[in-house]
Design a protein around this nucleic acid. Structure first.
Lengths: 188, 188
DNA sequence: CGTCCAAACGCAAAAAGTTTGCTTTATGAG
DNA sequence: CTCATAAAGCAAACTTTTTGCGTTTGGACG
């Protein structure tokens, strides 16, 4: 029961995808942040440019595809004992990741993609992380905000700053957002 | 005392910029949402492609430039008598604008630009609008949230939804954000 | 297993887009 | 009015992208 993403996910197809992704990552870190071309990637991946064009359409979509993979949350945030602690811990790491050069780049690549579903995917990632922290807090017996409240109160401001005004995407601000969101809960 | 944006903003240069911008807008609404090329734009604008490349670098930057102009707030939001009313009124219009096809396109174009200063510009636009509404409310004697609170509580969630999950960028949600932001003020 | 269909790739030529060196135009200052 | 130079035009390289066609290779079915 393999996940049937594409009509034919078997051997070669998967190998090509892997090779191309690897090539992109290699070139991205090695050099050429700006000048990164499809023929170049094809060369290193050992494929023909036309293969890349046929599968991804253009460079932007390919980069977005690779970057989305990069941003995929691989492990659950650490357990610090409280929801506030977990959130701050996660935010700290996330901000560090996203304000780094490669992190920014990844975010930009995704935003540059015409395919809206990729952005929604980011949204789902964040939601599932928030949901995870919520449930953990609930089993501890903490009173927790709704998922919506967390998205609007924490994820949205953080993401907005990251995208539009990176200078204000700081840990201090993040803690403030957490604070506000959690305390607004108490006053109901 | 003309604004000295560029070394030589005089006649021809300005005319070319105007012609190119017009050509982009014309092509955008006329047809070809996707297939929109520099040589095509150059043709209609009556300029050489190389002129466009030298001034804007590439298609993405040109589109972003045109779109930023489109998003520039031209008039102050209507005065409804209360801050809540002004906000909702503005949000309603803004959401309508941004969920339309051309509006979405403009947003996407700006997000696709490599030049971060353009996004910051969007941020400043929003800030100045919020600040305008704040001051208007202050002269009325209303108690108003800080600019930061409005950006975090209203603009950020709205923008986040517009970008990542357009389906949830609704007027109902917007009113909720306004509500939450204004009422959190009272409980201090 | 062996056969067959079609998806995906390779190849190479053609088309389209982009860059660049040089020339010409025309703004803005003196 | 004259001059220096930013910006545009032009055309020839150059690079990337597209496309048609033949070949490979998963995966289904007998």
């Amino acid at each position: 029961m393999a996940i049937k993403e594409r009509p034919r996910p078997g051997g070669r197809s998967a190998r090509v995808q892997q090779a191309v992704h690897d090539a992109v990552r290699e070139l991205q870190e090695a050099r050429a942040r700006e000048a990164l071309t499809v023929p170049q990637i094809a060369e290193i991946a050992g494929v023909t440019p036309s293969t890349i064009y046929r599968r991804w359409g253009n460079l932007s979509e390919l980069l977005a595809d690779v970057s989305l993979e990069r941003l995929h949350p691989d492990e659950a945030p650490a357990d610090t004992g409280t929801l506030a602690g977990d959130l701050c811990r996660w935010g700290e790491q996330y901000l560090e990741e996203m304000t780094s050069v490669p992190g920014r780049q990844a975010l930009d690549d995704i935003m540059a993609s015409k395919d809206a579903s990729r952005r929604e995917c980011c949204c789902r990632y964040s939601e599932s992380i928030m949901q995870g922290l919520r449930e953990r807090a609930l089993t501890r017996g903490e009173s927790v905000p709704s998922l919506t409240a967390m998205m609007d109160g924490i994820v949205a401001p953080m993401t907005y700053r990251l995208l539009y005004d990176p200078a204000s995407a700081t840990v201090e601000n993040f803690e403030r957002w957490v604070d506000t969101t959690l305390s607004s809960l108490a006053s109901r």
